[in-house]
Write a protein that binds this DNA or RNA. Sequence first.
DNA 1: TTCCTGATTCGATACCTGTCGAAATTATAG
DNA 2: CTATAATTTCGACAGGTATCGAATCAGGAA
Lengths: 126, 126
Amino acid sequence: MAATTTPCCAPIAREPLSEPDAADLAVMLKAVADPVRLRLLSMIGSHAGGEACVCDLTDAFDLTAPTISHHLKVLRTAGLIDGERRGTWVYYRIVPEAVNRLGALFTPLTEPAPAGPVPASLAVTR
Amino acid sequence: MAATTTPCCAPIAREPLSEPDAADLAVMLKAVADPVRLRLLSMIGSHAGGEACVCDLTDAFDLTAPTISHHLKVLRTAGLIDGERRGTWVYYRIVPEAVNRLGALFTPLTEPAPAGPVPASLAVTR
DNA sequence: TTCCTGATTCGATACCTGTCGAAATTATAG
DNA sequence: CTATAATTTCGACAGGTATCGAATCAGGAA
């Protein structure tokens, strides 16, 4: 489901986001805009082997299993992680394309960029 | 206010995010996790001169002025934009450090990242 | 089979959030 | 000083969401 590697979207300060693109990205960002899910994503991504068992994740939080399961589902529905059952346990791993897409969106701007004349090279392309 | 250039945080898949860091980043991400605010941020960042007047922004949406003002406040509170009143109009511009911080968080991974040996030096800290 | 353990689904509840209309604020123009 | 325009603040309301306990599903072991 939703394995479509949508390329999409120049850096956020490059040109105005279209309404559909904004809506699409917002779905992904909403999934990440939560302390628990951020940590889950980080734990999964940094875990040895590139994947983590739900059993490992649950213990790190002061939350019940259903709640963790709910958060994992949100991340999976947003296309940020992918899960697979192997025997008794379920393993999740990051979907790199999705994370990279977010990284590309917030690509570095012109750095400190104090108030300058700022050449119109950054004008609205439109 | 809140001009503290919090460095913070390795790429999300590098090591598990600490609880405080996750909470901190979630605030910023919540601000961006909305279609309207995403477009506002994009319009401000890509506007000629690096700043945009509220009057310009309001017309692009099918929302009332109070609502747009609310969204701008959310973005400003999160430290993503900074506003300044000049005469009758209020101008907003992006805070590059904040956006860069998000970009760094979702920095590219090792690409396909299949199951590798990956030393257990990155286990869940707990 | 039957039991046990890991994980998800299902309701229910308390809280957060996006939106609006009305009122208040700020600054320019007559 | 009064009028007008641009923004913001203030309630208020509808819809969304994080969390839990209980029930359910999926495999492995006795």
